[in-house]
């Protein structure tokens, strides 16, 4: 998010504040603040966004099984369902731009699927950033970081203008709403660890 706005000297503190406090690099909070690479066109933003929504949904569904609190599970379930609506809206936008009538399932299989090959699985991604799945606070923090990526993608894609601007900004606003909901939830759980 920062790099996309002209901040060039941004560093992620490895291990987060835990590492600093103990003065050892334990790395347990290295959830990262990753940045999107540039997105070339509205169409590419739609494909990337669709992939991200798929990933977010998969992430929430998979984390739902990890967390112990019923309230956290229910929040993740709600957020996972909203990502389906975003996928539908993105495909509708894709059809409007290209004059096609492709379905969500076909879009996932024929367009978004091939574009998503070669990366990391959700499990590998979580491993890479050493997320402590026993810590609900860390899982919620990672969810916030991924939602921030989504927000950043949509805002930057919308800034390129064009007919997709309104829809992308609307989805961006909803991602901002997700972040607010996650933030409020963290603040409302005094014993979250």
């Amino acid at each position: 998010m920062l790099a996309g706005k002209g901040f060039s000297k941004v560093y992620n503190l490895s291990g987060g504040i835990k590492a600093w406090g103990k003065e050892v690099a334990v790395g347990s909070e290295d959830v990262g603040l990753h940045l999107f690479s540039g997105v070339a066109s509205s169409e590419e933003a739609i494909v990337t966004g669709f992939g991200l929504e798929t990933g977010l949904r998969e992430f929430y569904l998979s984390m739902q099984k990890q967390v112990s609190r019923a309230t956290t599970r229910s929040l993740f379930s709600l957020l996972a369902d909203i990502e389906i609506l975003h996928q539908e809206r993105l495909v509708k936008l894709y059809n409007a731009i290209n004059g096609t009538t492709i379905t969500v399932a076909d879009f996932a299989e024929k367009i978004a699927g091939p574009a998503m090959e070669g990366g990391l699985s959700t499990e590998e991604y979580l491993q890479l950033y050493k997320t402590d799945l026993e810590s609900e606070l860390e899982v919620l923090g990672l969810a916030l970081a991924i939602e921030a990526q989504a927000l950043d993608l949509y805002v930057r894609a919308a800034e390129r203008g064009g007919e997709s601007r309104k829809v992308l900004l609307q989805i961006a606003e909803e991602e901002r709403g997700h972040m607010a909901r996650l933030s409020q939830y963290i603040d409302q759980q005094p014993d979250l660890a």
Binding site: N12, S14, S37, G119
Partner: peptide, 16 residues
Amino acid sequence: MKWMQFFTPVTSITWE
């Protein structure tokens, strides 16, 4: 679902 292509990792630095 694959994640890597969405992200350009930021440089990580240690506390030192």
